[in-house]
């Protein structure tokens, strides 16, 4: 299993292939349906965003509250298809990696190819395992959304499948 750091994604984002299992470390931002809608509103009104989209990695997850001196509670991925309508716009604005679960619509897949971004799949239902690979968690926006608030997470060797690569590769066609 190859290990990569998000901070230098430019060096490896073209090298990963669909079907490969990788270990990812670095900063990611969580966002689900409600947070995506808020981001879209901010973009429509040309207002500042809670985090820079250029080179960002987004994790479709809503974590449980932290327990037992851990930085975060259960933090498994959610179904990505619900975020399909928002994804191409975010990719066009520089988002380079998206972590979720399940297949995407064709136009979203094409957007990944067009904007040279990668779609990763985390293991569904393994929230405890995911939480064990997160070293820090900080709410950075929309705190009122509760578990759907945008959080800044630090991954440490987070295991992921490469679902769509930059070259049109697709794990679901394997």
């Amino acid at each position: 299993m190859r290990e990569f750091k998000i901070e230098n994604y430019e060096t490896w984002i073209n090298q990963v292939t669909a079907g490969e299992v990788i270990s990812l470390s670095g900063t990611v931002y969580t966002a689900r349906d409600a947070a995506h809608k808020r981001i879209m509103n901010l973009l429509d009104k040309s207002q500042p965003l809670p985090f820079p989209l250029e080179g960002a990695f987004i994790y479709y997850a809503g974590s449980s509250p932290a327990k037992h001196e851990m930085p975060i509670g259960s933090c498994g991925p959610t179904t990505s298809a619900r975020m399909d309508i928002f994804t191409p716009r975010l990719l066009s604005m520089g988002v380079k990696g998206i972590i979720g679960k399940g297949q995407r619509d064709d136009y979203v897949k094409d957007a990944f190819l067009k904007y040279k971004a990668v779609y990763f799949c985390a293991v569904g239902g393994a929230g405890a395992l995911a939480a064990s690979r997160i070293t820090s968690c900080e709410v950075i926006a929309f705190e009122e959304l509760g578990c759907e608030a945008i959080k800044k997470l630090k991954f440490e060797n987070f295991p992921l499948y490469v679902a769509y690569d930059c070259h049109g590769g697709n794990i679901f066609e394997h």
């Binding site: 327990k67 498994g76 569904g124 239902g125 929230g127």
Partner: peptide, 24 residues
Amino acid sequence: LYKKSEMYDKISSQIGDILINANS
């Protein structure tokens, strides 16, 4: 489908919490 996926997420997060509790 949305409701089902929401329910799945809820249940999986509950299971995760239970596992974390059990581990701790």
